[in-house]
Design a protein around this nucleic acid. Sequence first.
DNA 1: ATTGTTGTGTACGATACCGTACATTTTCTC
DNA 2: GAGAAAATGTACGGTATCGTACACAACAAT
Lengths: 237, 237
Amino acid sequence: MVQQQSQIKNKLLNILPERDMNVLAPQLELASLPRGTLIAKRGESIQHVYFLESGIASVVVTTPGGYQGEAGIFGNEGYVPTSAAAGVDSSSHDIVVQMDAEAYRMDYESFRIAMEENRSLWKVVVRSIEAFSVQLAYTAVCNAIHDVNERLARWLLMCEDRIQANELPLTHDFLSMMLAVRRPSVTTAMHILEGNGFIRAYRGSVVIKNRAALEEFAHDAYGIPEAEYRRLMSDLF
Amino acid sequence: MVQQQSQIKNKLLNILPERDMNVLAPQLELASLPRGTLIAKRGESIQHVYFLESGIASVVVTTPGGYQGEAGIFGNEGYVPTSAAAGVDSSSHDIVVQMDAEAYRMDYESFRIAMEENRSLWKVVVRSIEAFSVQLAYTAVCNAIHDVNERLARWLLMCEDRIQANELPLTHDFLSMMLAVRRPSVTTAMHILEGNGFIRAYRGSVVIKNRAALEEFAHDAYGIPEAEYRRLMSDLF
DNA sequence: ATTGTTGTGTACGATACCGTACATTTTCTC
DNA sequence: GAGAAAATGTACGGTATCGTACACAACAAT
């Protein structure tokens, strides 16, 4: 069950017309998802659909050869697994909680029915998918054309966007998996960002000191998917 | 208008139950899309929705700084622009025809109405979006972890998948834009693939000689999105 | 045939990042 | 407070790719 809609932080649920949300509310339960939780696994059946309230999760691709990398990241601006909207009963991706999260979740079958009956939910969900796919597209090109420094800057910005605080609890090792680079590459990239005064690095966390400058540094790598998200969500109701 | 459904090569239209397709048929017209045609432009309004019958188009990301790269590729297995399904009246991506294409198209407004009224079309379209987003995710990670040789191999395979023939009319210059690498990097990568006997390179075209070996060479970089597409489309009706 | 254009081959120094290894520091555990 | 574990710093040779430039080959246009 759910409290006042206005207090819901998930942007998809929050934007729903009140009457639609009221229909949905009884089916939502709040769940705690500690870091490392596997929300979904590729090819395996979907138990619940999640709307994050806080924290971060990401779509992680693991190749048959054991390589791993992050394809996309999301927080309270989305829902997951996206394949649920397609009426598939299994996920297309591995989805992992990267920073302790809270999420409203509903069981998959209820979600399917709600998607059929609740036009507003449907709209919100489909736009969210579209917005996420824009992020994926830009990540793909970003990985091809930008160096580690810029990609790290981009990642930190995307992370801060989805967290209340400007202190991000992350280790170099963790970031190296996300960016699919060596751990020492993260270390040196971090030094460059810190040397420029954009961030302050501590053991196990990063504090963003000058977001504007960091955005400027990331330049090409950051901004368009974010703007596109706002555009896609702006004229919904 | 449209001929026998069984003769339609677009996999989405082809898979539709006959009665649903019959409803749709009067609104579809066949269009020729020569290479270079801009099917959609980011932020600009959508005129038509396209179901490719042949040829290839791709989602191209252009950064404010003028860099460019391909995020995803599609042929007769999809439709476009994906954002049309979200009820947005503008595209989220630039979409460019890469090899001369034919496509059934319908005007955007008809598509919106059809999506509301035609449950089968809706299902097919949403699954297609999901499948495409899987491709985007793997492209993102692929760009991060694989070298140019493997990425070229992957691209050629994805290209052949979407073309009848095994002769692909492409130049190094074109591929360098798709892969977001230098043109000479394509040349040397091409030599490696050719040296291994996987392909034969001609001026302005590439012929795939040993597809199985090429797949093995690409290994990690190729296969999962393709399998996922088949899985997503298999149990639809 | 001549000329221009387009596509491909190749070279070269510079740089970003790799794989790996190891030292150092901070935090956790007992 | 001693030892283990985790996080970070640093080094080093090797390789992939870069940016750029130029030569040559194939085709097109006149």
